[in-house]
Design a protein around this nucleic acid. Structure first.
Lengths: 198, 198, 198, 198
DNA sequence: AATGAATGAGGGTTCATTCAT
DNA sequence: AATGAATGAACCCTCATTCAT
């Protein structure tokens, strides 16, 4: 019966993913149960709240982002590693509207997703430190800030009248540019960073 | 009875403002009527939909922002004018959570608020053009982009675990920095501000 | 000011007639006021209830039917006179959906329309008596019965899936045929009535 | 839980029948829920619309009428079979005011009641054909016409100031008489019933 | 008189959540 | 465990009628 239970859980998750892909972010547990061909009670047993469901949906995404963070850390250029990660976050958010709720909002519960998010922030913090030390990142932002600002970018892009993706592209470019340390306030060092590499 | 009607309308608006100030952005017309000490019908007469109410609430804000835009245009320095306007938008958004819905979301109806928003965008466009010509603004953003990005900043700041205002401060700084034309792609000119100091 | 009042009353009546002609039988006093370009209060002053309005609308119709009754009485053939009247009632009912409410429903108020309806029934009674004496009408129907049966015919015809008018035509034919005295129960007299005149 | 559900459904139906018997045809789902001692949601689950409830209420009636139609078809005399069916329809309509809405009004949905109604019409059509071939029924009416005309009879009888039942009796007699083929247009045959006795 | 804003009962419908089976 | 019927609070909205101006 353990197998059955797992299959039911998966059905619900599939139905939820499908709904999100369709752009329906409401994730009403009743409706979901119907679509999943499962009783409401089953949905509730597995995901007591909409938030719990959201977080379950997010685990894959968060794991993928963690992998991205590792890959980014493996890159030689700190700046490009950071850029890579931001873009990865953006892409996931664009692909999954519901994920923003998890990525942006303060978790209360001690949940798997909350743990993953923390791990992600830690990984990002490593990238951040490295980029900052390389003079490629302003000093006043931390991992949470970056995460939220990307969410902000997506939020803005989604409200754009035209193409969401291209708007997101531009807004991310602005964000990245804005993350460079202010050249005016910088203490000049050898190999001024705001100039392109020879 | 014009006087009475106006008083009732104002009561509803007051109740709505109070709710928004309390952080209740739901603006349920029934509840509002109760709070305003007014029949439901009265609310519906004045504001047929939540959207209409939102827009009515926004008119003051939009007028204030229009004034700010004028003042910003009067400033000698294009860059500082633009900065001033962005900060003004941010402040209004921070003070009025509901206003973000009007500022961010595409209006459909031919409403007073929609008109004001268009006028605001036009005023911002003037600032933008001027700033761009002065080499203080990247080429790939327009008034809508700016508006939305500030909304994004507020969105991000609100989700920040710490102090919303200080987060907003930092995110706005990042945005502004990001709006400068990319120094790497810039054609160097005499006295260009965006070059690092010698 | 008497003139103004009358004009207002007429405006309301016109709006009501127009609504009925459009097939909108609800006659909501609010909506009517709006269409008539008149305050709700004015409508209420003239027509305290929907019923009152209905009756006012009916007066013309009832007068026309009274005239028809006179004309029918003037016809030489009692049977054809009766037929003529039934058809006239049917035509009015088909043209004016709201009129059925007045013609079918028991009036309580001492109203002009109630009076006219009574007068109409009296006129019809004359026709009925004459037709009955001529052996052209069964004995067990009176003026109210006839009135109601024509209403029934219209009611049935309106629910017909096809063409209302042609259904009404057929149903009226059935009604008329059914009104002839039962030949089987009749006491044979010279000049059997159920045979066509030579 | 099937048992429980069925019990609740029945409670609602009972409450509805009681209301109809009381003469309250409005069948407001809220009110019904209260009377049935059941949540509103339960009513909505079982009968999403007033129409659905009406149809559910009608199924018994329609089944009974179908049985009547069979019995009528079993009668030797086509004329008396038809008479029997019309009377049965009349009796049901007199006993159940709400049923008229189902019997008279064009169904849109593919519902059980619609199906039964169609079956009833078909059964009636058999009777009609037989009666027509026996020279006992005029040619220009079909099953729908009959059904609607009986509805018309009830409609008329209900508006009668006196006793509804006796009015219905008379109106049905008129209807039945009217359904005989017109003797004047008939081709005389040996032993034709519709000729007056010598 | 006329106006039309105000009223608020009334009715409709949804959906998160519980719980009997 | 799973089911899915039941619940009913919570919203939404309309419209007949009143009444201050």
């Amino acid at each position: 019966m353990r197998v059955d239970a797992a299959r039911n859980r998966d059905r619900v998750l599939s139905a939820a993913r499908e709904a999100v892909a369709r752009g329906d972010t409401s994730l009403q547990l009743n409706e979901l149960a119907r679509r999943a061909g499962v009783g409401v009670g089953t949905v509730y047993r597995n995901f007591p709240t909409r938030q719990a469901l959201l977080e379950a949906l997010s685990e894959d995404r968060l794991l993928a982002l963690l992998a991205e963070a590792s890959a980014a850390l493996a890159e030689a250029d700190p700046s490009s590693g950071l850029r890579r990660l931001l873009r990865a976050v953006l892409d996931v958010l664009l692909a999954d509207e519901a994920f923003a709720e998890v990525l942006a909002i303060r978790q209360e519960a001690r949940s798997a997703a909350a743990g993953l998010k923390t791990r992600f922030d830690r990984a990002a913090e490593d990238l951040i430190t490295r980029a900052r030390e390389a003079g490629a990142l302003r000093a006043d932002v931390d991992a949470e800030d970056l995460r939220l600002m990307v969410c902000g970018v997506v939020h803005a892009a989604r409200n754009n009248g035209g193409d969401t993706d291209s708007a997101a592209e531009r807004y991310l470019a602005v964000l990245m540019a804005g993350l460079r340390p202010d050249p005016r306030s910088a203490v000049p060092r050898c190999g001024t960073r705001s100039l392109p590499p020879e």
